[in-house]
């Protein structure tokens, strides 16, 4: 069953004679249990696409279904409930609240949901141990490392068991060691916890952790490759080949 389905989604910016077609007629589908990467050069429309899917921005035309629900039709009032029940977010710059401890950051959405306190504690401890951040739970965001912060963000995204986790350049602010740890964590989340993940990245290394990669160019899907049974190294090389084909400044930072 598909968790996410896009039908001819368009997002245009600007007026009349000065229109930017950031997303220009994109259709694809993500099934339950998938780990999909969207790749593309800077300005190719990745963030815009992700913003549309995450209900942060609204589309110019087209439809986006999460489960059975068409999110382009949801009323503003019901949006918060929808996001809380269906979506998890991991950002490049963590977006942790510095007034709350790591533990409180993770459990924030459960608290809003009025989840039972014992149940909540259990879930936080469980997810924290799986992500290896049990011993920093009582600390505050500015007291832990970037990698730990990002894993805290992962835990926060996972704890409500969302249908879909959306990540925008999650390794963007991390060093290579922390990046690798995070990507491994995300792969585990996908493989062992059954999380469906859609990740936007410009970085081949990150994309090679996924099961499927979509290539974006000028707001359109240019190509799509599946990992299948290939090793990560083989998949990595294949991505590089497509990027060369795509041309342009693929190694540019966002």
């Amino acid at each position: 069953m598909s968790v996410l389905k896009l039908e001819n989604v368009k997002k245009y910016y600007g007026v009349k004679n000065n229109i930017t077609k950031a997303v220009d007629g994109i259709s694809f589908q993500v099934d339950e249990g998938e780990f999909v990467a969207i790749m593309g050069a800077s300005g190719s429309g990745k963030t815009t696409l992700l913003n549309c899917i995450s209900t942060i921005d609204n589309v110019t035309s087209g439809h986006i279904y999460v489960g059975r629900e068409d999110i382009t039709e949801i009323k503003e009032d019901d949006m918060a409930d929808f996001r809380r029940e269906n979506l998890g977010f991991i950002f490049q710059d963590f977006n942790l609240l510095d007034t709350l401890s790591i533990e409180e950051n993770i459990s924030l959405s459960l608290i809003i949901n009025h989840t039972d306190v014992n149940e909540m504690d259990k879930r936080v401890l469980d997810i924290a141990s799986k992500l290896g951040i049990s011993d920093v739970l009582k600390k505050f965001p500015y007291e832990v490392s970037g990698g730990q912060k990002q894993r805290c963000a992962c835990a926060r995204a996972l704890i409500t068991h969302p249908k879909l986790i959306l990540a925008d350049e999650p390794t963007g602010a991390l060093d290579s060691k922390s990046s690798r740890m995070l990507l491994e964590t995300m792969r585990d989340m996908n493989e062992h916890l059954g999380a469906t993940i859609l990740m936007v990245t410009h970085d081949t290394f990150s994309a090679s952790f996924c099961k499927r990669v979509l290539f974006l160019k000028d707001g359109k899907i240019f190509n799509e490759i599946l990992r299948g049974d290939k090793s990560r190294k083989e998949f990595f090389d294949e991505i590089i080949d497509v990027l060369t084909l795509l041309g342009g400044d693929t190694e540019n930072v966002r």
Partner: peptide, 16 residues
């Protein structure tokens, strides 16, 4: 604003 945006993303209602 970033903090409030995050609240909204996490599913906290505007009213709250």
């Amino acid at each position: 604003s970033l903090e409030f945006g995050t609240y909204l993303l996490l599913g906290i209602k505007k009213k709250q």
